Amino acid sequence: MSEDLKLNNQLCFPIYALSRQITSLYRPYLEKLGLTYPQYLVLMVLWERKSATVKQLGELLWLDSGTLTPLLKRMEANELLNRVRSSEDERSVDIIITDKGKALEKQAEQIPPIMKKQLKLTDNQLVQLRNQLRKILLITCNEQ
């Protein structure tokens, strides 16, 4: 067997496994807020920006519209956001956070410090890891 085909020599596998593991670490804290991990990501963008277009959300979260649209519809049904057709361009849909969505921000503030503690990495290690992962993500996206 080629060394290149051994599971332990793959870059993709630890990234895949770690992604699943980290998402599962978030799960109990997000369940208390009534959120899934993708919904949490959308809300983080809206807490920062107050509103965004569907296109902007897709670009920021690396999600296609086929994934994003049903997610946003569920969040609107739960009164976390409103989807409003843009008055400037009817092809564009603006996503606006509601008061209920804003209220979750205070409760969610506890999550990042808990995750940091669970990962047992220093601030410097976290910054380096995040920067390296972003670099790989950008490289892979530019090659598609």
Rank of each mutant, 00 (worst) to 15 (best):
L35D: 01
N82E: 08
Q144S: 14
P28V: 05
T36E: 04
L138P: 01
P113Q: 02
E48L: 07
N124Y: 10
E59V: 12
M75N: 08
L133H: 02
R74C: 00
L72D: 04
C141D: 05
L33R: 02
A77T: 08
I111E: 00
Q107D: 15
K100T: 07
F13H: 03
Q144M: 13
I22P: 02
L33Q: 13
R85V: 15
A108K: 03
E88D: 13
L61I: 13
Y26P: 00
M75S: 06
A17G: 11
E76M: 11
Y29M: 04
Y16K: 04
K6F: 10
T69F: 03
D89C: 12
L35H: 00
L80F: 05
I96W: 07
E79D: 12
I114M: 08
M75A: 03
P112F: 10
T53D: 03
Y40K: 13
P14V: 01
I139G: 01
L126G: 11
I114P: 07
K120G: 05
E76C: 09
Q125G: 01
I136Y: 09
L7F: 12
Q125H: 07
K55F: 11
L61Q: 14
L119R: 07
A108H: 04
C141T: 14
M44N: 09
L5V: 14
Q39H: 03
T53F: 02
L119Q: 08
M75L: 01
R134P: 01
E143R: 10
N78M: 11
P113F: 01
I111W: 00
I97Q: 12
F13N: 06
W62M: 11
K120S: 09
E109W: 05
S92Q: 14
L138S: 15
L126C: 07
T67W: 07
Y16C: 10
K32P: 04
Y40S: 07
K100M: 10
E76T: 12
E109Q: 09
N8F: 01
K50S: 15
N131V: 03
R83I: 03
K32W: 07
L71E: 10
I114Q: 06
K117I: 06
N78A: 06
N8D: 06
R85M: 13
